[in-house]
């Protein structure tokens, strides 16, 4: 599955640029996570790729089909759960899934059969005939995800599907998303960095409409100046180092630096018999570096 965005720009009338020359190419099965703060342009990007919105300039291709001029063909390939989408309260989960499949062209019987199958896979078979309004927030969100999974669409857009869910429900949804990403491309937007790091095979970082970085976690780590962290318990005197020192509220010290510097420092700490841990920077750290220009206390 392939998406190619070329200089996508969206300028809503009377407002700032929602998207500013965004270009990227992704060709894989798996999960592409787009992260950014509120208003970063995530939803605008998804809506353009999902043929719901026209860009001001630029274009995009899905499996080499132009989303601007051949939207009809693109729509055969994609399925979308928009931001703030809600399961229609007067429908049951089975009715929700099957009617969506009918909009995709399946017959009543086919759509019911496939709907039942997907709801069973997601553990919703016991509530398939309950009204959506009676379900918990997490279950309602699962119903929406079930609608798009049940389609054969090889490319799925999920715009902030876990926003507002409690941690347990979010993790349940992560498991579902993780299990369904192997035979399709899922584009997930989120402002939960942990979610993007856990699920994303590739990650795009958007800020104020600009795509600041794009790639796998390893590729993103190569973008930042200091890709490693050494964490030392307690207050320790650190000689000058090419890096960034962050003192945590519990008294521990985190030093962000290059691989070579971290290795050197680790040797010194070993000699001084000081306890420490070494790890690669997280997406949270990368996001802070790129979006906020550094690591804050």
């Amino acid at each position: 599955m392939k998406i190619n965005a070329i200089k996508l720009t969206k300028n809503y009338e009377g407002r700032n640029l929602a998207l500013d020359n965004v270009s990227f190419e992704v060709s894989m099965n798996g999960m592409l996570a787009i992260i950014g703060k509120n208003g970063a342009g995530k939803t605008t990007l998804v809506r353009i790729l999902a043929t719901e919105l026209l860009p001001t300039s630029g274009t995009a291709y899905i499996n080499d089909i132009d989303v601007i001029h051949n939207a009809k063909d693109v729509r055969e390939l994609i399925a979308v759960v928009p931001q703030e989408a809600r399961a229609v309260p007067w429908l049951t989960p089975l009715q929700t899934v099957s009617s969506y499949l009918m909009w995709r062209g399946l017959s009543y019987r086919e759509s019911r059969e496939r709907g039942k199958e997907v709801l069973r896979t997601l553990g919703l078979e016991n509530v398939e005939n309950e009204k959506n309004r009676k379900l918990s927030g997490g279950m309602k969100r699962k119903v929406l995800v079930a609608t798009v999974i049940s389609s054969d669409a090889p490319i799925i857009f999920l715009d902030e599907p876990t926003t507002g869910l409690d941690y347990i429900s979010r993790k349940e949804l992560w498991e579902i998303l993780n299990s369904m990403k192997y035979n399709r491309l899922i584009i997930l937007t989120t402002h939960y960095l942990e979610e993007a790091e856990v699920l994303g095979d590739k990650i795009g970082i958007l800020d104020k409409g600009k795509l600041l970085a794009f790639g796998s976690m390893d590729e993103l780590r190569r973008i930042v100046k200091y890709p490693f962290i050494i964490k030392i318990s307690g207050d320790v005197k650190i000689n000058s180092i090419d890096g960034y020192i962050k003192r945590l509220s519990n008294g521990d010290v985190q030093i962000f630096s290059t691989e070579r510097e971290i290795f050197k420092l680790a040797q010194e700490l070993l000699e001084g018999k000081i306890k420490f841990t070494v790890q690669e920077v997280s997406l949270n750290n990368i996001f802070e570096f790129l979006v906020e220009g550094g690591v804050e206390d």
Binding site: A50, T51, E76, A79, Y100, R104
Partner: peptide
């Protein structure tokens, strides 16, 4: 269905055309 449920956005991105919907 469009503003509160966002259902229309799901249908827009499906093979159903505006006229049929």
């Amino acid at each position: 269905l469009k503003n509160d449920m966002k259902l229309q956005d799901m249908v827009v991105s499906s093979p159903t055309s505006a006229g049929i919907y």
